[in-house]
Simulated scan of single mutants.
Amino acid sequence: MRLRNHEGTPVDPVPFLVVVGLTFMFVLSFGPLYGQALGAGLELSVGVSFALFLAVAFGSYYWQVWTARPETVGVVPASVRAVRLFYLMLVLAVLMIGLAIPLML
């Protein structure tokens, strides 16, 4: 998959695909459950969750692909990126646990 920014420069698609995949996982896993817990029907809950997923996917595409500047990729050292990735994994784990707790009670 060759994604290009608005200038026609090739952009790495992996960050975009990871964000879209994680958004799909979280929104379509928890969205319908929370919608039904709040009294909405299954169809409405899935529809709203899918609309939210599409909004985040389009926003992510704009931010990570369309306006990306590949020439600035090496500016941040790899050690700083690794620490950020570790903290992001912790945040995602806490978010997933935090979203699951109310549904279990």
Rank of each mutant, 00 (worst) to 15 (best):
M1D: 08
M1L: 05
M1P: 12
L3N: 03
L3C: 01
L3F: 07
L3P: 08
N5P: 07
H6C: 10
H6N: 11
E7H: 07
G8D: 01
G8E: 00
T9N: 09
P10F: 01
P10N: 01
V11R: 02
D12M: 04
D12L: 09
P13Q: 01
V14M: 06
V14E: 12
V14N: 12
F16T: 06
F16L: 04
V18P: 09
V18S: 07
V20K: 04
G21R: 01
L22R: 04
L22I: 15
T23L: 05
M25L: 13
M25Q: 14
F26R: 12
V27S: 05
L28Y: 11
L28Q: 13
S29R: 05
S29H: 02
F30L: 04
F30A: 09
F30H: 08
P32L: 06
P32T: 09
P32S: 10
Y34W: 03
Y34D: 02
Q36N: 08
A37Y: 05
A40W: 07
G41F: 03
G41Q: 03
G41Y: 02
G41W: 02
L42V: 11
L42N: 13
E43S: 12
E43Q: 07
S45C: 05
S45P: 10
S45M: 02
G47V: 12
V48F: 05
S49I: 10
A51L: 05
A51S: 09
L52W: 06
L52C: 10
F53R: 09
F53V: 15
F53H: 06
L54S: 11
L54G: 03
A55V: 08
A55H: 02
V56D: 00
A57P: 05
G59N: 10
S60M: 01
S60L: 10
Y61K: 13
Y61H: 09
W63A: 14
W63S: 15
W63G: 12
V65S: 00
W66Y: 09
W66M: 04
W66C: 04
T67D: 03
A68H: 02
P70H: 05
P70T: 11
P70D: 06
P70I: 00
E71G: 14
T72F: 14
V73C: 13
G74R: 03
V75G: 12
V76K: 10
P77S: 14
P77G: 14
R81E: 10
R81G: 12
R81Y: 13
V83S: 15
L85P: 09
F86V: 15
F86I: 15
Y87L: 14
L88D: 12
L88K: 12
L90D: 00
L90N: 00
L90Y: 05
L90I: 03
V91C: 11
L92Q: 15
A93W: 04
V94L: 06
L95V: 11
L95Q: 01
M96C: 11
I97P: 05
L99A: 08
L99W: 11
L99D: 04
A100R: 07
I101G: 01
L103T: 09
L103A: 02
M104N: 13
M104W: 09
L105M: 11
L105C: 11
